[in-house]
Structures are given as C-alpha cells and as structure tokens.
Computed example of a mutant assay.
Amino acid sequence: MPVTTPEIKWRSVERLGATVVLKGDSYDEAQSYAKLRCEQEGRTFIPPFDHPDIIAGQGTVGMEIVRQLQGPLHAIFVPVGGGGLIAGIAAYVKRVRPEVKIIGVEPSDANAMALSLCHGQRVVLEHVGGFADGVAVKVVGEETFRLCQELVDGIVLVSRDAICASIKDMFEENRNILEPAGALALAGAEAYCKHYGLKGETVVAISSGANMNFDRLRLVTELADVGRKREAVLATFLPEEQGSFKKFAELVGRMNITEFKYRYDSNGKEALVLLQCWHLY
C-alpha cells in the first residue's frame, strides 16, 4: 500500500494475517513495486480492479441493490478510482435494469475516468490529489475503461469541501463516519440532484469505506461548512513590510471575521499568507 494509506486501514489488514508493505506516495507507485516483487520472488500479481473476475465480483454490489430495491430507481452513484466497482455494477445493472442510470463520482483532483471518457482513450494523470486516498489513481484500468465507455451514463466531479460536507451530514444523520472515498458518491448524488432539480426520485449512493484516521477529522471539520457554503476561506499574499497587515485588517474589518492565520509561503519568499474565515449565515 502507499505510505499515505490511513493507519486504520493497513492495521486492519495486518490483523487479518497479511504482511503490509508501505511503498510509494500513490497507488500507482505501490502497484509498480508490487509487480516488481512478483517478478523477483515468483509471486502472482492479483490486480485490484482491472481483471474480469475482479470486475464481476464487484458487480455483485449491483446485484444486491437490484434485489433489495424492487421499486423505481433513477440512478446509482458509484465512487470511481481504477473503475472496477463501477464497471461491475454497470455490467450487471444495465443487463437487468437498463433504465437505471449509472453515474460515477470522482474528486476534481483525481479525475482519470472523467478525462478518459471525454477523450475516448485512457488518460494518465501527472498528479492526483490524495485526500480521497481510496480512489487516488493516475490511470484507470483497460478493461474497466472499455466497459465504462459502453455502460456508464456520466461522471460527476466533486470538491474536497463537498466531500467533507457529506462526511459531516452522514455523521449527523446516522452517526457513521465515512472516509473521503466513502463519502464521494454521497457528495456526487447531492450535486447531481441539485443541478437537475431532481425531487421525488429514488437514488442510491454507495458509501464504500470508513477508514478514517481520527486526526484527519480536524481537517474535515474545518472544511465541512465551506462545502455547505456557510463559511468561506480565502487566502492572500501580504508584502513583508511595516504596516501591511494593519492596512489589510482595516480593509476587511467590517466583515464577520472568525479567525486569522498567517505563515511564510512554501517557496520561502518574504511574504505572509493570511487565511481568513467568516460565517456567511
């Protein structure tokens, strides 16, 4: 697994008897290392998403949804990383309930499937955001992409703030804590329904994980109200000279400021970064 994997996830895998090796900053780097180990040690590589058997196995989620929900169903929202889950669900559901829309959901900074479908070929991302680490994949699978081209109705992209807002909503309504990738489909379903003014329809959002490190909840808490547009977070650069902060404070003094933070920027320039937040309600 990548070194960025939440500890709660790899510790749980260890408790099942596996030996966990943390390697690389992303899934793709971890996969490359795993394949190298397979070649060196004569092991068999089991792909996590790009194989017909894996896709078929994940497709049983679609089978469960269809069997448990006999009434009308408008759409199923599925988190997308390498594409195995959505390809499997789409392959099953489109065969037995072709009227049901299959909508993928990706973070806006890890959108390999959306770009691939747009360009008609698999696109390799140079960088992927690691907030929703469960779907942080630079390139989707060859077989998963082929199936998604044929069967998926669309992709919704959501921001980190929207994901945090959905994590908060799930906790407040059901007392369940989702990991970012687990809340992805929920955020996408909300954005889709709001955009199209969808009311009175039944939709399913797959909450696919709860591997949330406790210390990460601090960031989720800070961004949740931003995602609900109850609070705004802005940044500006201030020159490192006498009186600059005073001038800025006078400029924004009429706003309902709740917090100031400042620090030197990451490039080491002599400028202060000021983060300001205020409630909008």
Rank of each mutant, 00 (worst) to 15 (best):
Pro79Asn: 05
Ile155Gln: 02
Asp169Ser: 10
Thr144Pro: 00
Val137Glu: 01
Gly154His: 05
Val124Lys: 12
Val96Lys: 06
Val66Met: 04
Leu69Asn: 13
Cys38Val: 13
His74Ser: 14
Glu64Cys: 00
Ala91Phe: 03
Ile167Lys: 04
Gly88Gln: 03
Ile76Tyr: 11
Ile76Thr: 04
Ile55Trp: 03
Leu73Asp: 12
Asp161Arg: 08
Ala110Gly: 06
Leu117Arg: 00
Arg67Ser: 14
Ile55Phe: 03
Val96His: 08
Ala90Gly: 06
Arg95Cys: 09
Leu36Arg: 12
Gln58Asn: 13
Val158Pro: 07
Ile102Asp: 08
Cys118Lys: 14
Thr144Cys: 11
Arg37Tyr: 03
Asp50Asn: 12
Gln70Met: 09
Ile103Ala: 01
Phe131Pro: 07
Glu41Thr: 07
Val100Thr: 13
Val105Glu: 00
Cys38Ser: 11
Gly130Met: 12
Gly83Asn: 07
Leu69Gln: 14
Tyr92Arg: 08
Arg67Met: 11
Leu147Phe: 02
Ile163Pro: 07
Ala112Cys: 08
Ile103Cys: 05
Ala34Ile: 10
Lys168Glu: 12
Leu147Tyr: 05
Ala87Arg: 08
Leu147Thr: 03
Gly120Ala: 13
Cys164Gly: 01
Gly141Leu: 04
Gly57Val: 07
Glu142Ala: 14
Arg97His: 07
Arg122Ile: 04
Arg37Val: 15
Val93Phe: 06
Gly129Phe: 06
Glu64Gln: 14
Val100Lys: 06
Gly154Leu: 08
Glu172Trp: 06
Glu150Arg: 13
Gly82Asp: 02
Ile163Ala: 04
Val158Lys: 05
Val66Ser: 11
Gly71Val: 03
Val123Ile: 15
Pro98Asp: 11
Ser108Glu: 14
Val100Phe: 10
Leu69Phe: 14
Ala136Trp: 06
Pro52Gln: 06
Ser108Ile: 10
Ala112Glu: 05
Val123Thr: 06
Val156Phe: 05
Gly88Asp: 04
Asp133Asn: 14
Tyr92Asp: 10
Gly42Lys: 11
Gln121Lys: 15
Pro107Cys: 01
